[in-house]
Design a protein around this nucleic acid. Structure first.
Length: 767
DNA sequence: ATTCGCAAAGTTTTT
DNA sequence: CTTTGCGAAT
């Protein structure tokens, strides 16, 4: 502990040593915030505070994992609860589900599932919605929930058209969710906040349980999150929040900047600590960031400074077109890599909208620079994954109609739209869940025999899965795959997309296996599903690989890179067109650029172009108004017209000036020079990856056939195997930990569901 | 039940 | 210009 303190600055030390009472830590970018927070937890434990009285809340899994990792380094085996708001709420809600009308096996719907539930609710209302899209309604409901407005409380402002629709739809939607025993993301917070508000004994016992609460990125909390944290800090107001108002970039999602700006009014005797010293960036970079952000009014004044060297000046480069911009940047990167000065992973390129990544991808690929792009949601949103998990959802929560309707005819089993409609009508009429309605398919008059039989077969599958019992997740998923023959949909196809789907299913099984290892005992279906819906795969962005990173400025928060490029610093893109006219939204756009700039450690280039192709047509670009707020005399300006005085106010927005500059605007780097660069290992696409994986798997099974002893890990679900007694068969499910891995096998000879302990059996892969 | 074609929209994104 | 989703046709 003493060693720890020695390496800290005075303000950092103050924050670390703070024990009781509320604390507000205003931490600028690169100020060592995470380190301070984890050190403070270490100190709390040191003071004799029990680990289970400490609660650390973050926004993203990435941040939570980072904190866990650092904490584990200092205090191995601690059981301080570190996690996201949503996960904490989900856990609390499991224990007290009944109080809000749910049962503990409730399902968490993602945005798409919620939309389906919403559409179903609108159907039951049967009044036509003409002037609002479902997305708009969904958004309005989400906004209400984030602001703690319940369905009963919601009332439209007079004359507000969308509002009056929402007023009717919101309660119906909420009813539908309860019928399905499901919640949406916002409900996790709303229900929990209401739970605490309406059950004073529960609130005070939890307040006592969680005496020390730490919240990260407090500037991004919404009202619901605020209410939860506030309710847990009344008797024991040892709440410490960390954040930076200048890095609040999620206002459009309901984040309430007021939460952090007014923290000091909210609690008595708040200790305020300012971490202003920056350890990340050069002076050149920091001064640009500082000047820019000082144009905002809604902030807490902060003086950023650093002991780091001056560094090279920040570049502001103007290219002719997005093509030359991309090539120029790719050329600089290739050059630096080629000369051995930098590695690919040192670089990041940020842009305001995903659509801008295209030209960069081409340019990087042309020069053979490996890169990775961070897109938001992926894995758990894929159709094949959602389909397979849909079965598990229904098994876990038989009232989950949304999941049921997703899978009832997937893979196709002759249950058409009409049949589903009739089932649904029956369900509504008798107040049944879809599954129970399906059970009665034989009694529904509108259904013909063929349809009724098809439905009965589906019910049989669900019942079979339900009867499997509390086994490992990997095993139940294996049963899902073999019962539905889902895998067979893809195995015969040579469409590369299908191969990718197959690989994704394997990945799901691997994820299930890892989960099983961490949660032994079997039957943890709902925890697995919860993890699947609350996780997103930007979280496991590969930090280890040596590639240039391309991402939106939003995704960049919390990261740092030696060299950063920010492209398209242009009016209409940054600030974005839709934010340009509202002063508070404009400030958020400025914060976004501030976040992007402060990711850079040593080198930074901002760039724009003269004309940009957008949605098919080329338009002359107006430089971002933010550029005028930067200390241009301290920056290196490259490329006409930014080199001269043309960046003066009078030429702003005047397209003519841009035309005159000519078409071969200066490019900072000669691309041709690097065209001959021997291409480094190119960025591997997922299909490449799938191909390698298949080959590897083949090699493994070839080897296995020759070797007398086979490792249990070499068996996988769906594999064809041979047994000396039963002959050829197929693995329909796998379960158990690595030492006691059990395979369930159906044999061609007719023997079904035979179980073998892989370590001990004579079962071998067939080749 | 699947496939094809057309229309419409096209910030940012967590959970 | 692209992508994506829904609806109509086979």
């Amino acid at each position: 502990m003493d060693d720890l303190l020695k390496s800290l600055t005075q303000p950092q030390r103050e924050a670390v040593l703070h024990v009781d009472g509320p604390m507000l830590m205003l931490a600028g970018p690169g100020s060592g915030k995470t380190r301070v927070v984890t050190s403070r937890i270490v100190n709390l434990l040191h003071q004799g505070i029990s680990a289970h009285q400490i609660l650390a809340l973050t926004f993203t899994n990435k941040a939570a994992d980072e904190m866990k990792l650092r904490l584990a380094r200092d205090v191995p085996d601690t059981n301080v609860w570190v996690g996201t708001f949503h996960r904490f709420a989900a856990r609390l809600l499991r224990q007290h589900a009944v109080l809000v009308g749910l049962s503990e096996n409730y399902t968490i719907y993602d945005t798409r599932d919620s939309r389906q539930a919403l559409l179903q609710a609108i159907e039951t209302l049967d009044f036509p919605i003409t002037h609002a899209t479902p997305e708009a309604i969904q958004h309005a409901i989400s906004w209400a929930k984030n602001n703690l407005v319940t369905a009963e409380q919601y009332s439209a402002t007079r004359g507000h058209e969308l509002g009056s629709i929402v007023e009717r739809v919101y309660p119906a939607y909420q009813k539908r969710l309860l019928e399905c025993n499901a919640v949406d993301f916002d409900d996790l917070l709303l229900h929990t906040a209401m739970l605490l508000r309406e059950n004073p004994e529960l609130r005070s016992s939890l307040d006592q349980r969680y005496q020390y609460i730490l919240v990260d990125e407090y500037q991004d909390t919404n009202l619901a999150q605020y209410a939860i944290v506030r309710a847990l800090s009344i008797d024991y107001p040892n709440l410490s929040v960390t954040g930076d108002p200048d890095q609040s970039i999620y206002g459009w999602r309901g984040a309430n900047l007021g939460n952090i700006l007014e923290f000091e009014k909210d609690f008595a005797n708040v200790k305020v600590v300012r971490l202003e010293e920056n350890w990340r960036s050069t002076k050149s970079i920091l001064v640009v960031a500082d000047q820019l952000i000082s144009n905002n009014t809604r902030r807490k004044h902060k003086e950023l400074f650093t002991d780091n060297p001056q560094g090279s000046p920040v570049r502001l480069t103007c290219y002719t077109t997005q093509k030359t911009e991309a090539e120029g940047i790719a050329g600089q990167i290739a050059g630096a890599i080629h000369s051995g000065r930098r590695r690919p992973r040192d670089f990041a390129i940020f842009y305001r909208i995903n659509a801008l990544s295209r030209s960069l991808e081409f340019a990087l690929r042309d020069l053979g620079v490996p890169y990775q792009m961070i897109h938001g949601l992926e894995f758990f949103q894929r159709k094949e994954i959602k389909d397979v998990l849909g079965y598990l959802q229904v098994v876990n929560n038989p009232r989950d109609d949304v999941a049921l309707m997703r899978i009832i005819n997937t893979p196709a089993r002759a249950i058409g739209k009409k049949t589903v409609e009739r089932l649904r009508a029956h369900a509504i009429r008798y107040g049944l869940s879809m599954l129970n309605a399906a059970r009665e398919s034989g009694l529904i008059e509108s259904l013909n025999k063929r349809a009724a039989v098809a439905v009965a077969k589906f019910v049989a599958i669900i019942d079979f899965l339900g009867a499997v019992g509390p086994v490992d997740v990997e095993e139940i998923l294996g049963h899902v795959l073999s019962q539905t023959a889902y895998r067979e949909l893809f195995t015969e196809s040579d469409d590369p997309q299908d191969q990718e789907r197959l690989a994704n299913i394997e990945e799901l099984l691997t994820a299930a296996r890892q989960f099983d290892e961490q949660n032994p005992g079997g039957g943890h279906f709902e925890e697995f599903l919860e993890q699947a819906s609350l996780v997103n795969d930007t979280d496991d962005w590969e930090t280890e690989t040596d590639k240039v990173t391309l991402m939106t400025m939003h995704a960049a928060k919390g990261l740092e890179f030696p060299a950063v490029f920010v492209i398209a610093v242009e009016e209409g893109l940054l600030p974005h067109e839709r934010s340009r006219h509202d002063p508070s939204q404009l400030e958020e756009e400025r914060r976004l650029l501030f976040v992007a700039i402060t990711r850079a450690e040593e080198e930074l280039q901002l760039s724009l172009v003269k004309k940009r192709e957008f949605r098919g047509q080329t338009k002359y670009v107006v430089p971002s108004s933010f550029l005028m707020e930067l200390p241009r005399e301290e920056m290196e300006l490259i490329g006409a017209p930014l080199g001269g005085d043309e960046l003066a106010e009078e030429s702003w927005g005047d397209d003519a000036d841009w035309n005159e500059a000519g078409d071969d605007g200066e490019v900072t780097f000669n691309v041709e020079e690097f065209a001959e660069t021997p291409p480094p290992a190119s960025s591997s696409t997922s299909s490449d990856l799938a191909a390698t994986l298949t080959t590897a798997a083949e090699m493994v099974s070839e080897q296995a056939a020759e070797l007398p002893q086979v490792s249990p890990d070499e068996f996988h679900q769906g594999m064809v195997v041979r047994h000396p007694e039963y002959g050829l068969g197929k693995i329909v499910a796998l379960g158990g930990g690595s030492a006691r891995r059990v395979a369930t096998v159906d044999f061609a000879s007719g023997a079904r569901g035979k179980k073998f302990i892989l370590n001990a059996s004579a079962l071998r892969p067939a080749t």
